[in-house]
Structure formats: structure tokens, C-alpha cells
Design a protein around this nucleic acid. Structure first.
Lengths: 347, 347
DNA sequence: CTGAAAGCGCTTACAG
DNA sequence: CTGAAAGCGCTTACAG
């Protein structure tokens, strides 16, 4: 045994306790302490209690760096995303941290550009170098099968948040955008609208496809057909919403209601309507998706589909912390319509 | 020496190279490799080049967990904040990651509630358990001297982003909110406004104090006095902006221009003006602060003070990566006014 | 249920 | 300028 001074000399800063200190003070081997840290059942109940009390008294917390080195895996959860909506990202982070807090795990963020050709390489380096415990994949990167394949190949746990299931249940949290959009269709139909339009997000986004199909399908079930000219694809941005609205509202006969694939594009519709002197909701009803802070800042306050992003983050992180191979049903979060003042029956 | 098989058997997953592999392949000791990793000058140039080439070929990256354990310090930068504005937080994260990317450091986020009595304890645990390399303190937590004192006491590097300097230069990035607000004053005066009002943020926020004093001081220098009744304190939120605007716009004689301490509160003024039938900018000029996405979504687009948050994040992270004790002048980012359509000369 | 030995992949003294 | 030994604080086989 190397002669190591265990007693800090007076005036010396109090060194944080280690597993050796706990073992010595409790009169057990460090292996037993390790078993307790890792919740092994192979410890007598009274031994466990004695040691746990001691750890609490001393304020002992195992060093994640040392554990990580021995485990070959850190105590970090990565969040990978490529999303322009700040509030969505922040809520997702809050949610993940709600469940991580107190668990000894921390959240490492990794925004990226999924249009860049080597972004998957960037994620791989991130995950491998940091030996991440698991990765949360947020839309739209969550929809990228090549990314998921890469992660599976290097054998790292990941969780995909997406509009529909596209992986094994233990790797998915499904947000049911289809149903959220269908609820909008039902609402507009119930108000009496029949000449309805939609501004969709990019057609290579799964969320966008689901919102469009959910909306159009539900209208059809209620006997309302959406002509091709009433569906305009845009880019989920304010500017693209403006352009799409100009097309739609510049038509000889204007629709009486527009459903937008997100709130940003709905704000674009507001802008064009304002400039053209079209009154919302008197002459035009508008619905968004996201229920972002923007929705309630606009005038009139925008009716929109809320998704509980923070809860999605909570659930996702919890699934990543579960012991591997835990069988479980598909996890879901459900959107719902928040009715404000941007719709009324057609004039 | 333990007999360890260095050659992976065929079919075995290729184990990542370690410092031992590099040392053996290069024919030097691992200590020499370590010196190269850590940029020690005590290595002959040709040795360095030979080893660096090898590392590149093999794709060797030192394990941050092992280095962290030996250094007693991780390769993680923490970002601590308590801020309701999602875009601000996200931009700060982007900025920090701009400089962290490729450095081997990663960003760990830690939102918190500075009103909670034990939040400082929470930050301490976060910093100590993860053995963070450094911490970025974003407003408003950056203004909390008790937090900074705690971090100094446990001897961890931190960096404070704040409206004015309140620490040693190597620990500060100053955002000069005073000057941003003064620019607004000059602008409104130049348009001819004399009956001006201000909605301030909370008086215990340094940013709020600086914006108020900067605004009021600049007006005074131009001969315009702001009566007490024209300055209303609010809470940096939309709702508080609505309440403050009701007070200001309900007065017998309305001001012709209102400067708001942030865009959220300016959106509140828009809301009240809209409901009261007061036309912006014809009957009322409005200016915000932040230049958030909201500013350009509102109608009319809001004139606002832009702060380059992403750049602030970049600079802050860079300062945390610098070798300790690097002398340097005070770091600054400067705000500037973005003129849109929410102001005109008083009618 | 418990423990002694070896190892995870690095760095820090200490020599030379 | 370079290296052999010991250590950072944990866990994984392997024994008992």
C-alpha cells in the first residue's frame, strides 16, 4: 500500500471523499461500496444501509469521470437537433433536464446542420469521443434513417422523437401530428368553412407530411375536398409563409380559412392579410401549429395546436435512462387544439 | 507487464486506439505522446511531427474521461442561465458551440430558477460533480454576486456576461446596454418626440437599470426630461407589458413614443394599442430591445435594439478556453438600433 | 454476500 | 528532450 495521507492537514482544502474513504470508514471493501453505488442486489440490507447513511453524512458522490473511464461510458446524454424554432428546442432541453436532474446525468447539446453532407460524421465524433450514454434525436434529424443506422452500428443508445413510429418502440416517442391536424380540420368544418386552404411545411419533413395528410384526410371524411391549388408548400419559415399567403390570398376567390403547418407561417399569413386589408378572423380564419409564444402575441391571438414539448423531453430522457432492453409499449404524446380568436364562421 | 493482446482478432470490433498504441507504433514513451497531446514545448520538433502524423492516420483522439480523471477536471463547459427568452438562450448556445466545436470541449446546459433559495447549491453540485472546466454565466444569474463568490471559493473558472463590468476583466463580457438605450433616445429625439415614456424591466436587473439610465440620461443630455409618471416598471414579460401599457395609454394625455426594455413588453404595447384603436406608428411610436424574431413578426415591424448574442457566446467560450491568467482587456459586444416601421415623427 | 488484484486511459512528480 | 513508476477514482473478472 502506498503511504497516502488520508487525513487532510489543517488548513489544507478538504479533499472530496472517494470510494476508498467510504470503504475504510464503513469497514467494508471498496467493491462493496461499488456494489451499493450500482444498486447491485448482492449486498446485505444492513450493510447497504450502513454505507448509504455514511455516504450521505460525508456528502459522498461518486466521480462520474472515474466511473465513466471504468465503464467506458460517460454519464452524459446528448441532444442532437437541427430546428429553427428556439422555443421548441429550449422546452425540449427543459424537459430532458427535468428527468436528468438528480440522476447524476447531464445534458450535452449538439445542434447541427442536417443539410451539410458530413453532419452524420460530426454526430458520430460527438457521440464516440464523449462516450455518450445515450442520444436524443429531435425532429428533423430524428427522421434521418442514415443517422439512426450510424448510431446503431456504433452501438449507442438513441431515442427518436417523430410524428409517427419509424423504429423499435424502445427507441421512439411519437407525437401524432396526424391527429393534431385532424383536430384542426374538424374545428374548421364545425365552424362551417368549406373553402379551406393549407400551407404545408417542406414535403421531405415527416411532420409536414403527417400534418398535411391528417388535415386533408379528416376534411375528406367530413365531405370536404381540398383542390390542389388550395395546398401550397412552404418552408416552415415566416418568409416562406408570406410567399405562400400571397399566392393563396391573391387568388380570384380567396379561401375562408387557412391552416398553416406551423405558427411561423401563420404569422406570415397575418402579415399578408394585414397589408391587403383582409380582416382576421372576419374575412379569414387562420390556424397554426406549435402554440409558440408568438401565437398569443399576434393580434388577434392565434388558434394553434399545442404539443407538450417539455413533457416529450421528459419522457425521452427517462427512456434513455432505463436499463437497456426494458420492454415497453410505444411512448406517445398527444397534441391538442388551443382555440383563441383567429377563427370564426365564414362571413 | 500484463500480457495484453494488442492485436484485435479478426471479426473483433476495432478497439479505438489509446495512448499506448500510439506510443508503441511511434516508438516513443507514452509520456512523450502525452506531452504532444498537451502541447508541451519539451518535445523535439521531428518527434512531434512523426507522432502527430501517426495520430492523424490512426484517427486517435485522447479519451476525455481518462484525461479528466487524471487532470481532476473534465472537458465540459457549463452554461448556467435563468432567462425566459428562448431565442436568446439558443443563440448563446450556438455561439458557445461555434468556438467549442473541434476543441474537444462540449457544452453542458444548466437552466435554473434564481428565485429558488437553493439554486446556488444546485449550481455548486453541478460544477463540482462534473468537475467542469469552466462556467458561462448568462444574465440574469451573471449579476448574482453570491453565485460568483461561491464559484470563486470552490476555485472554478467562470465568465459573466452582463450590461456593465462587475468583476475582473478576464471574467467579464460586457454588453453595454446603456449605449443601446441611449441610441434609442437619440433616435426618438431626432424624430421630434418630446413626450416620451418608458416601460422598464425589473429594477433589480442590472440590464434593466442600465437600459433605463442610458435612455433617460441621453434624453436629458438632449434637453428632454422624463417625468416620473412616464416611467413604468414591468417584469420583462408580455403580460407585464400589457399592464404597463394600459397605465401609460390610459392617461389623459398619451405619450407619443414608448421605449420598452425588451421586445416582449413592446408586444404588450402593441396589444393594448390595437385594442384601444391607437395606430402604430401614426399615433404612437414604439421601440423594443433584443431584436428577437418577434420584432419582425409584429405589425408594423418593430424597431428594436439588436445585441449579437451569438457573438457574445463565441467570445465567452473562447475566454474560458484560454490558459488561465492570460492578461487581456475587457471584452465587449456593442448593441445597435435596427430601424423598422414602428416609429415616425409625432403627429 | 464479500474481497484482493488488475485494469480503464490518461497525467503528475521524479529522474536522467 | 525523454522515460519508468505511481496514481486519478472507479469497475470488471475471478475467487471464496
Amino acid at each position: 500500500m502506498p503511504a497516502k495521507s488520508k487525513i487532510p492537514k489543517p488548513g489544507e482544502p478538504a479533499r472530496a471523499a472517494t470510494i476508498n474513504d467510504i470503504a475504510r470508514l464503513a469497514g467494508v471493501s471498496k467493491k462493496t461500496v461499488s456494489r451499493i453505488i450500482n444498486n447491485s442486489p448482492l449486498v446485505r440490507q444492513d450493510t447497504r444501509e450502513k454505507v448509504e447513511t455514511l455516504m450521505r453524512e460525508v456528502g459522498y458522490v461518486p466521480d462520474p469521470l472515474a466511473r465513466g473511464l471504468a465503464f467506458r461510458r460517460s454519464f452524459l446524454i446528448g441532444m442532437v437537433y437541427d430546428n429553427p424554432t428556439a422555443q421548441f428546442i429550449v422546452n425540449m432541453q427543459y424537459g430532458a433536464l427535468d428527468t436528468l436532474r438528480g440522476s447524476g446525468f447531464e445534458l450535452v447539446v449538439h445542434p447541427c446542420d442536417s443539410r451539410s453532407p458530413n453532419y452524420i460524421d460530426g454526430v458520430r465524433r460527438f457521440v464516440q469521443q464523449q462516450k455518450l450514454h445515450g442520444v436524443m434525436l429531435v425532429p428533423r434529424v430524428s427522421e434521418d434513417q442514415a443517422l439512426a443506422d450510424m448510431l446503431a452500428e456504433i452501438d449507442v443508445r438513441y431515442l427518436r422523437i417523430a410524428a409517427v413510429s419509424m423504429d423499435t418502440p424502445e427507441r421512439m416517442v411519437v407525437t401524432h401530428d396526424h391527429d393534431g391536424a385532424a383536430e384542426v380540420a374538424d374545428y374548421l368544418q364545425s365552424l362551417g368553412h368549406t373553402d379551406i386552404a393549407m400551407i404545408t411545411g417542406p414535403s421531405d419533413y415527416r411532420s409536414s407530411i403527417e400534418r398535411s395528410q391528417g388535415f386533408i384526410g379528416a376534411l375528406e371524411r367530413r365531405g370536404i375536398e381540398l383542390p390542389k391549388a388550395r395546398v401550397v408548400e412552404a418552408g416552415y419559415t415566416f418568409e416562406s409563409g408570406v410567399a405562400a399567403a400571397e399566392t393563396l390570398l391573391g387568388a380570384k376567390k380567396r379561401p375562408t380559412a387557412i391552416f398553416c403547418g406551423n405558427d411561423e407561417m401563420a404569422a406570415g399569413v397575418y402579415r399578408v392579410a394585414m397589408r391587403a386589408g383582409i380582416s382576421i378572423p372576419r374575412q379569414l380564419s387562420v390556424v397554426g401549429y406549435d402554440d409558440s409564444p408568438l401565437a398569443s402575441r399576434l393580434w388577434p391571438p392565434l388558434t394553434s395546436v399545442r404539443r407538450d414539448t417539455r413533457d416529450t423531453g421528459r419522457i425521452s430522457a427517462a427512456m434513455l435512462l432505463q436499463p437497456e432492453g426494458t420492454p415497453r409499449p410505444l411512448a406517445s404524446v398527444r397534441p391538442h387544439l388551443i382555440v383563441r380568436d383567429s377563427c370564426q364562421p365564414p362571413g
